[in-house]
């Protein structure tokens, strides 16, 4: 009697367990790389440009690699958290990173990062963004010149928002210093990603936000562009007042840098110690990026998807890193 009930109980439990077995088995086995899904580390909070760039390329890269990709967010510490995380993963090619590499030299120069510029190697850096200063549609900030005027009178009168250790941050400081504003006294809020900066600016939580122009497309109806930090016209922001123009009008001299440089990154160690894996990755990304459908998809989202390749991307990265390290002193005390 007793053993009868227990057997039935056991059967019931096996049935319960069996339910979890019934689900489809996602591609497994085969020892050849890649034989399981690949993690893409995005060192920002969800919703920023790196997130979008990963998402847009994912279906095409997935097809080339024959394995699903999954995005893992590791926001915090001005990208140091995500980048450190990447370097601490096993060198098996199952963790790569989609990041704005401009943060790397800046966090290093600020003494926040436990790594070096050379610890990272590029697969491809397709996207170059530019800083844009915006305010919410209904704020009292009339124009960029107005904001600067007010800040000059009282550095605490206008709150500013920016992502920690970003090029946007450098650009903001460059402008403020050019006008002669005491940057030690400003009310500055730092965020863990361009996405949160944009939301905060669009919602009027902060008076002026500085972030990459690309990511503002979704929020276009909620914001007013105060200044664009670029020289040649960008089609989708053709009406934006340019910083250089504002500067000549107000009679100041301003220097600024191009914004975030974005793309696919792996640890240099992986490239050196697992050249085969690196080659596989590069091949897959090259084919995916050149896929006409992928190009079309990226245009819909106004994200540039161009193939430069590892060599050209590395060169671009190293060159930008040098310029940024020269400017990193501006972020002292942040």
């Amino acid at each position: 009697m007793k053993s009868g009930t227990t057997r039935r109980e056991a059967l019931k439990l096996t049935m319960l367990a069996g339910a979890s077995l019934a689900c489809p088995n996602i591609v497994r086995a085969a020892d050849k790389y890649p034989s399981r899904p690949i993690k893409i580390v995005v060192p920002f909070a969800p919703g920023g440009s790196s997130d979008r760039l990963s998402r847009v390329a994912m279906p095409f890269v997935q097809k080339e690699l024959g394995q699903p990709l999954e995005v893992v967010y590791q926001p915090g510490g001005g990208t140091v958290l995500g980048h450190t995380y990447l370097l601490n993963q096993p060198l098996d090619g199952y963790t790569i990173c989609n990041s704005a590499v401009t943060y790397i030299p800046l966090t290093i120069a600020q003494g926040l990062a436990p790594f070096k510029v050379d610890d990272f190697s590029m697969i491809n850096l397709p996207s170059r963004d530019f800083t844009m200063a915006v305010t919410a549609k209904d704020t009292s900030v009339k124009s960029f010149a107005d904001a600067l005027d007010r800040l000059k009178k009282d550095p605490r009168s206008v709150s500013l928002g920016v992502q920690a250790s970003s090029v946007d941050y450098v650009n903001m400081i460059l402008v403020l210093q050019a006008v002669g504003i005491d940057t030690a006294k400003i009310r500055l809020v730092t965020y863990d990603g361009g996405g949160p900066v944009r939301n905060a600016a669009a919602g009027g939580q902060i008076d002026v936000g500085f972030a990459g122009a690309e990511g503002f497309i979704n929020l276009r109806d909620k914001i007013r562009v105060l200044a664009g930090f670029w020289d040649e016209t960008i089609a989708e922001w053709s009406g934006a007042p340019l910083v250089s123009k504002i500067a000549t009008e107000t009679g100041i001299k301003v220097n600024y840098l191009p914004g975030a440089l974005r793309g696919w990154v792996v640890p240099t160690k992986l490239k050196q110690e697992q050249p085969e894996i690196f080659k596989t990755l590069v091949g897959a990304f090259e084919r995916a990026t050149k896929n006409p459908e992928a190009i079309k998809a990226s245009q819909v989202q106004q994200l540039g998807l161009v193939w430069y390749g590892p060599e050209a991307s590395d060169a671009m990265y190293q060159k930008t890193a040098k310029v940024l390290q020269e400017h990193a002193y501006l972020l002292k005390g942040s």
Binding site: S3, T6, A10, L13, T14, A17, G18, S20, L21, C23, P24, N25, I26, R28, R36, P37, P68, E70
Partner: peptide, 28 residues
């Protein structure tokens, strides 16, 4: 204490756990 239960049931749990989670998650 019954030896049959002590052998059969752990086997069932092991099979279900290993194969179930292998199907479920992407990690080795």
């Amino acid at each position: 204490r019954r030896p049959v239960a002590l052998i059969v049931y752990p086997l069932a749990v092991t099979l279900a756990a290993v194969y179930g989670f292998r199907a479920l998650m992407s990690y080795p």
